[in-house]
Design a protein around this nucleic acid. Sequence first.
DNA 1: ACATCATATATAGATAATCTATATATGTCA
DNA 2: TGACATATATAGATTATCTATATATGATGT
Lengths: 115, 115
Amino acid sequence: MTMNKNLLSGSTTMLILKLLDDKDMYGYQMIDELSRRSDDTFSLKAGTLYPLLHNLEEQEMIESYEEYAEGNRIRKYYKITKKGKKLLLEQRNEWNLYAEKINKVLEGGVEFVTI
Amino acid sequence: MTMNKNLLSGSTTMLILKLLDDKDMYGYQMIDELSRRSDDTFSLKAGTLYPLLHNLEEQEMIESYEEYAEGNRIRKYYKITKKGKKLLLEQRNEWNLYAEKINKVLEGGVEFVTI
DNA sequence: ACATCATATATAGATAATCTATATATGTCA
DNA sequence: TGACATATATAGATTATCTATATATGATGT
């Protein structure tokens, strides 16, 4: 990823699952789509994505099928499974909790609030 | 950390700097304070914190001084430096951007919005 | 015709932030 | 006295990302 690579650590799977929850995509398309939707904030590297996709497929979170594009080019499309949708939901809940608590800590140790 | 350890990756430094921006603290206190302020969502491990503090001190983001507590116990207090305050500000900006973009991706590829 | 770049998938090895496990020492409580 | 909380510290394991590299096709420019 661009920006602090560590901040994103652990969110990549969630983002990929979210993309596939919207529609089937092939790897390279996910990289572009993620970049576009995040206003170029997230630019996932191919070397990160492909192993991650293989891993998610092995865990049955996604399924792949091949489709011919122009020429002899074969594209490997991925589709989210029911199990993957469940994981996505869990990860979204976790993300919401995490973001909420980070913001709470950043608000500071305010003991008294004036009204 | 409790929860997904990877989600937090990269935020720990920011959270520690934020705690020290509120007031000087010693290591163990930071663990408790972070746990308290995050409603027990974040429970930083001592094995994570101490090396991180040594690192931040080496980079001159924080400074330490010793103070005697009850008995012969010496506590090592940490204080944020000007350089550390600057880093905190940068990391907060980065966090805000990151959270915003993650949420944008999670909103989905909505092309049209009804009014 | 050929080079170069974008598309597309893939893997090996490096980097870095966290973790677990362990060590040491003091204070408190049963 | 033993167990547990407090307090600091380090070594080694784990894991998610990265960079670098490989392969192959299609499009573009000269």
